[in-house]
Amino acid sequence: MEVVNGGNGANAQYSVEKLVDTNYKYLRMCMEAYLLGQDLWDLIFCANTEIPVDTPGNAEPRRKWKIKCGKALFNLRTLIRREFIDHVRDVNSPKEV
């Protein structure tokens, strides 16, 4: 992991190398830390890994889940090199990725 654009402190931006066939353990550790920090890790290893049922009473929790899911999927998919992306292209759950 490296600091990008010279930032430090709260403004620092980090870059993580993309998934290749030899760096899975490293990338998993980085993604776990990032997803924990962004409050997205529960979509992978907690009870709410599936979208809430589509009922009038669940409209707001369902909307929030979709937003969190989209953020997690974006982060996970952008760290996979192009030659491996076909494995997760049609997956709609961060847990499955």
Rank of each mutant, 00 (worst) to 15 (best):
K71T: 01
N92S: 11
C69R: 15
I80S: 04
L76S: 03
P61Y: 02
S93A: 04
L76M: 03
V4T: 05
L27A: 05
V91K: 04
L35Y: 04
K18A: 11
V53C: 11
R28D: 02
P61W: 02
E32C: 01
D39Y: 00
R63P: 14
D86C: 11
I85M: 15
V20I: 06
Q13S: 15
L73E: 00
W41A: 13
R28A: 04
Y24W: 11
I80V: 10
V88N: 07
G70L: 00
E60I: 14
G70D: 00
E83G: 09
A33E: 00
L19I: 05
K66V: 14
P94E: 00
E50A: 15
T22A: 10
I51D: 13
M29V: 11
G57H: 05
P52H: 04
C30P: 06
N8R: 13
Q13F: 07
Y14C: 00
G9A: 03
A72H: 14
K66F: 09
L43F: 06
N48L: 02
W41E: 00
N48P: 14
M31R: 07
R63H: 12
L73Q: 06
E2R: 13
R63A: 14
K25S: 11
N5I: 07
K68G: 01
N92A: 08
P56M: 09
T22R: 08
M31H: 07
K66E: 15
L40C: 03
N75T: 00
F45E: 11
R82L: 13
D21S: 12
Y26A: 01
A12W: 00
D39K: 00
I85Y: 14
V97I: 06
D90F: 01
D54I: 09
T49C: 12
L73Y: 04
D39G: 10
G9P: 10
S15Q: 11
M1C: 07
L73N: 01
V88R: 12
E96M: 06
P61E: 07
N58V: 13
M31N: 06
F74Y: 09
T49K: 15
K66W: 05
E96P: 08
E96C: 05
Y24V: 01
E83M: 04
F45C: 15
P61I: 02
D21P: 10
L35M: 07
D42N: 08
K25N: 04
N23K: 03
K18I: 07
R77A: 08
E32T: 07
Y34A: 00
I67N: 11
E17V: 06
H87E: 14
E17C: 12
R77S: 08
P94D: 01
W65C: 14
I80Y: 09
I67H: 12
T22Q: 09
T78V: 11
R63T: 14
T55H: 09
R28I: 03
S93N: 12
V3C: 08
N8A: 13
A59C: 09
